[in-house]
Every structure is written in structure tokens, then in C-alpha cells.
């Protein structure tokens, strides 16, 4: 596993801090891989799969919001569209799962290109409102188009056989497939963040006019970040629809966009591992609180308020501050 950073990007940091960052990152990677490997033997596999799907979703949002500084309030659109497309292709055409996922990701990436191109025309708070409004169009389509099943959604999506051999109806094979996809997606985001491209994204987050004046085509970088983020969010959505064997309107609703923001915020916006931690916490919380019915929404709202007021760095962000490392 390569944990090496892009050297010219963090030259300014003292060597000791850099080494510490790298050690802590290695520690987190170790913990994550160990958790993913043994979790299905300690927890319900389907529960862990849900965690992993949402963790990937939150990491995708974090790439855009945490590292590029663009708050998207419409990421459920990409997650949901991909879930619907994959589900539809698997159910109605009996497509193999890998092809279905590929098609789902392709659709969410294309949608990301359209939404991103429109949204980056405005900045800051307007960006959030535009993404929310565009996602609402997607929601209305999901309600009205004939193939989505309206209020019922798509149910009984077959999991099928991976590459024609591995039976995904088997809980553990399904689990390790999800785990591999999650780790691959997470590793891709990790690499993107540490690439020169990722450094430019962070420069845009810190000071957009300066990045512009240094000669970077800021809009192109933002658009590309948006497309990548949408594509990975789509990957998470596709996996979710195969794991749970259904795709429904909740996947495309604005509440889903809000939840994934909460996951990222709790874990730590702009931290590498934060969204994973945040997603685990929110999914576990929803599981625990399932008994109190609609009070869950009140609890989630209250957590939002507390996080924003007292806890803006998030769990991993606070941890990083305590350990005096710059990037985890």
C-alpha cells in the first residue's frame, strides 16, 4: 500500500509533522482494512455493507465539499440515478452486475457533468441552492418516469453472479465484493487528493482568486472535481441498490443529500478518513434509533445543530488537531 505523498505539495510543512501525518495515515489505513476484513464476522454483513456504501458516498461528497470547497446539496441525485439505472438494468434485462454498475456510474457521471457545468456558474451559497434545485428536477423525473416504479420504487433487484462465477446471493461473497469496491473507490479518492490535481483543488478551496491569478483554469478544475465526485457517488448508489436489492425515492430525495452532508460533517470536512467515520456513526445511529420512529429526524437535526455550532472540525478533524497532524 503506497501512502507516499506528493512531495512538492507539502514542502512547506516541517519534516517532523509530515512524517507524523504519514504515520497516522498508515495507522488509519491499517485500522480501516482490518475493520473491513473482520467486520462481517462480528456484525451483520448487510449492516456493514450499508456502512461501506454510505462511507463511499460521503467520501465522494467530501472530495467536492471538503477538498474543493463546493457544498453540493444535491448529491442524492447522483446516488439515486445510479441506483435506479443499475437496478433497472439488472431487473429488466438480466444484465450482469458489473455491467449494471458500470452503466449506473456512467449515467451519474454524465449527470454530474451537466449539473456541475450549471452549478459552477455561481459561487458560494448559490452553488448549494442550484445543486439542490437541479437535484429536485431529478427527483420529479424519478417520480414520474414509468421505469422507476413511482412510489414503490424498484424492488427485488437480482444480485446475479459476478463475472458469471461468484454467486452474490451468498452473503459473504456479496460482502467482500462491496468491500473491494469500497476500498478501491476510497483509494482512488485518496490518490486524487494527493495528486497535483488534488493540490490545485485545495488551492481553489483556500483562495479561488489566487488560484485563478496563478493561471489555473479554476472552472475546469471545479467541473472535473464535480464529475469525479458525482461518478463515485453513483458507484456508491449502484452498490447500494445491489446490496439491498431495491432502489426507491428516498435515494434521490433531498433528505438523502442532507444525511450525506451530516456524515461528512460529523467525521470532519476536508479530512481523508473523516467521512468514513461519520458514515459509520450515522448509519449505526439510524439503526439504533429505528425504534423511535419519526423522532429520528429531530435527533438528526439536533446533531446537525450541535456539530455546526461546537464541532465544526468533526471527529477526525479534532483528532488531527490533538495529534498535531495536518492531513488524516
Amino acid at each position: 500500500m503506497s501512502i507516499s505523498d506528493n512531495p512538492d505539495a507539502i514542502d512547506a510543512q516541517p519534516l517532523a509533522a509530515r512524517a507524523r501525518s504519514r504515520n497516522v495515515q498508515a495507522l488509519f489505513w491499517g485500522l480501516l482494512i482490518a475493520f473491513v476484513a473482520v467486520a462481517p464476522f462480528m456484525l451483520y454483513p448487510i449492516f456493514v455493507m450499508q456502512m461501506l456504501c454510505f462511507a463511499l458516498f460521503a467520501c465522494a461528497l467530501n472530495l467536492l465539499t471538503g477538498f474543493t470547497g463546493l457544498l453540493s446539496f444535491g448529491h442524492a441525485a447522483f446516488f439515486g440515478v445510479s441506483a435506479y439505472i443499475t437496478g433497472y438494468l439488472l431487473t429488466s434485462f438480466g444484465m450482469p452486475p458489473l455491467l449494471g454498475i458500470l452503466a449506473g456510474v456512467l449515467c451519474s457521471t454524465l449527470l454530474g457533468a451537466v449539473v456541475g457545468a450549471l452549478a459552477i456558474r455561481r459561487q458560494g451559497i448559490y452553488f448549494a441552492m442550484i445543486t439542490l434545485a437541479l437535484a429536485q428536477i431529478v427527483y420529479f423525473f424519478a417520480v414520474q418516469l414509468p421505469f422507476t416504479g413511482g412510489e414503490n420504487g424498484l424492488q427485488g433487484i437480482p444480485r446475479g453472479h459476478l463475472l458469471g462465477v461468484i454467486d452474490l446471493n451468498h452473503s459473504l461473497s456479496m460482502y467482500y465484493f462491496v468491500a473491494v469496491v469500497f476500498l478501491a473507490g476510497f483509494w482512488a479518492i485518496f490518490r486524487i487528493i494527493h495528486s497535483p490535481f488534488g493540490q490545485v483543488l485545495q488551492a481553489i478551496r483556500e483562495n479561488e482568486p489566487r488560484a485563478l491569478s496563478l493561471g489555473y483554469n479554476v472552472d475546469r478544475f471545479k467541473l472535473l472535481a464535480f464529475i469525479l465526485s458525482a461518478g463515485i457517488a453513483g458507484l456508491a448508489g449502484s452498490m447500494k441498490s445491489i446490496v439491498f436489492q431495491f432502489a426507491s425515492l428516498t435515494d434521490v430525495q433531498w433528505m438523502m443529500s442532507g444525511e450525506v452532508i451530516l456524515m461528512t460533517l460529523i467525521g470532519g470536512l476536508g479530512t481523508i478518513f473523516g467521512p468514513v467515520v461519520g458514515a459509520f456513526i450515522v448509519v449505526a445511529l439510524q439503526q439504533e434509533l429505528a425504534g423511535i420512529g419519526s423522532w429520528v429526524q429531530v435527533v438528526i437535526g439536533a446533531i446537525f445543530i450541535v456539530c455546526v455550532l461546537l464541532f465544526r472540525r468533526g471527529i477526525v478533524g479534532e483528532l488531527a488537531r490533538l495529534l498535531k497532524v495536518t492531513s488524516v
Partner: peptide
Amino acid sequence: LYGLDPIYSLLLTFGAALVLQGIFIN
């Protein structure tokens, strides 16, 4: 939250909206 990125106040009011809505649903 004044003086911070306006994103945070958007998220705060979003949380408040969820709480209000949840209370009336109950």
C-alpha cells in the same frame, strides 16, 4: 456563526428545519 463561511449557517438552519419538521410530524 457570523464571520464564518455562510455554508455553516445554511447547515445550522437546515438542522433547525429538520427539528421543526420532525416535531410537527410527531
